[in-house]
């Protein structure tokens, strides 16, 4: 099984990387770009457990390492 874990900044937390990217895109002539958000994705292959258990484990991973709950939200999507 393969899960993609999306680590995003919480609504309201500033995103300097996204803003700088937006500015650069606008400068390159992409005038329609209104907002860019930076998102980090970890693709995790996990075996030997049910999908339900795996999802619980991945939530633990997010809490223990992948995200900082003060500034991040996370999403889990199964891709395989």
């Amino acid at each position: 099984m393969i899960a993609e874990v999306y680590i995003k900044l919480k609504e309201g937390v500033s995103d300097p990387e996204g803003e700088a990217t937006k500015k650069a895109l606008n400068l390159l002539g992409f005038k329609n770009v209104k907002r860019v958000s930076s998102v980090k994705v970890f693709r995790i292959a996990i075996e030997g457990v049910s999908r339900e258990e795996a999802e619980k484990e991945i939530e633990e991973m997010c809490k223990k390492l992948l995200a900082n709950p003060v500034i991040h939200d996370y999403d889990i999507r199964w891709v395989g």
Binding site: K63, P69, V70
Partner: peptide, 13 residues
Amino acid sequence: DEPQMALAINDSN
């Protein structure tokens, strides 16, 4: 048990 604050990316990026 989990972080209570963050040291986030500088505003200047």
